[in-house]
Amino acid sequence: MPRPEVVSATPTLFRDDGALDEAANTALLTRLHGRVDGVFVAGTTGEFPALDRAERRLLTGLALDVFGAAHTIVHVGAASTREAVALTADALAAGATRLAVLTPYYLPADAEAVGRHFAAVAEAAGDADLYGYLFPDRTGVTVSPAEFAETGLRGGKLSGAAAAELTAFRAAAPDARFWSGADTDLAAVARAGGAGIVSGLSSAFPEPFTDLAAAVGTKDEDAAQARADEVLAALGGTVAGIKEALRQLGVGNGVLRMPASAPDPERIAALTGG
């Protein structure tokens, strides 16, 4: 069994006035470099619906500068196909070679509509690796394993209800690579033949997840799993929790652009020592 990957889904860090904080985002990426296998930028954890196109270009450039193209996955998803294609062009122009595209969202979209959306982005992506991003709990759009296989994409990030179907996606598209957005399910993902996890929690606490990746199938797996579970319990699996943990660790100020439930600082402090 190959060691599963831990790709950090990075939050986007803002200044007190809500403007994007270039220095803090660079500090976060630098902190993660050498500690995880790669980064996934401008995704759900990155509050992408609250970012404008120029900000997404900036985040892409920062990630590529620190991690390089081979270890950076740039999310180019948007509600409209036109915007997703434009974001794809921006990412390619910056030097990205690995992209992820969320399904359309908000308006109902059947398999044919999703297929058209993915096909347009794939055409714009050219030779770049393009992965689908399925998160039916948030988008309201469900793509079955068989429907996904018809897209011809090179893999996918499966979050929410889609993550529970990893085995079915692997069976339907055996040549594709799939990552789970369920951070603490890494061991099960590895056993099911998944590539690894795209993990928001690891952007604050990398080692509990990389240690778990290394421990899968060994006598240390249970202890490593317990440490990863402890991170999930403290941070609640939320962007707010991740940002609060980073704030306590001296990276960023915890500010979100998107309204969200407040985390429990005292519970997080038990992990950070803050």
Rank of each mutant, 00 (worst) to 15 (best):
P2K: 13
P4K: 02
S8T: 13
S8C: 15
A9R: 12
P11E: 07
T12I: 05
T12G: 02
T12A: 12
F14I: 14
R15I: 05
D21C: 09
E22S: 13
L29G: 10
L29K: 08
L29R: 12
R31N: 02
R31G: 10
L32Q: 12
H33T: 12
R35A: 14
T44V: 09
T44L: 14
G46V: 03
E47N: 11
E47L: 09
A50F: 11
E55V: 12
E55T: 04
R57A: 14
T60D: 10
G61E: 12
A63D: 01
A63E: 02
D65F: 05
D65N: 14
V66C: 09
V66W: 03
F67D: 10
G68S: 05
H71W: 09
H75K: 03
H75A: 00
G77M: 00
A78G: 08
A79M: 15
E83L: 14
V85I: 11
A86R: 11
A86Q: 13
L87H: 06
L87D: 07
A91R: 00
A91G: 13
A93H: 09
G95H: 10
A96W: 06
R98A: 03
L102N: 07
T103Q: 11
T103W: 02
P104L: 11
Y105S: 13
Y106G: 01
A109K: 06
D110L: 12
V114Y: 03
G115T: 12
R116M: 07
R116G: 12
E123L: 08
E123Y: 01
D127A: 15
A128T: 04
Y133C: 09
Y133L: 13
D137C: 08
D137I: 06
V141S: 04
T142R: 14
V143T: 07
V143Y: 00
S144L: 08
P145A: 06
F148T: 02
A149D: 05
A149E: 07
A149F: 03
E150A: 15
G152W: 04
G152H: 11
G156F: 02
K157M: 13
A162D: 07
A162S: 15
A163Q: 01
E165V: 05
A168L: 13
R170W: 04
D175G: 15
F178W: 01
A187R: 15
A187V: 15
A188P: 01
V189L: 04
A190G: 10
I197F: 02
S199T: 14
A204T: 04
P206Y: 08
E207K: 12
F209H: 11
T210P: 00
L212W: 01
A214C: 04
G217F: 06
T218W: 02
K219T: 15
D220G: 04
A226P: 01
R227K: 08
V231N: 04
L232A: 11
A234Q: 05
L235A: 05
V239S: 10
A240E: 05
I242R: 01
E244A: 11
E244Y: 01
R247P: 09
L249M: 15
V251Y: 08
G252Y: 05
G254N: 01
R257H: 05
P259C: 00
P259V: 06
S261M: 15
S261K: 15
A269Y: 07
A270T: 14
T272Y: 00
G273V: 11
G274H: 06
G274S: 13
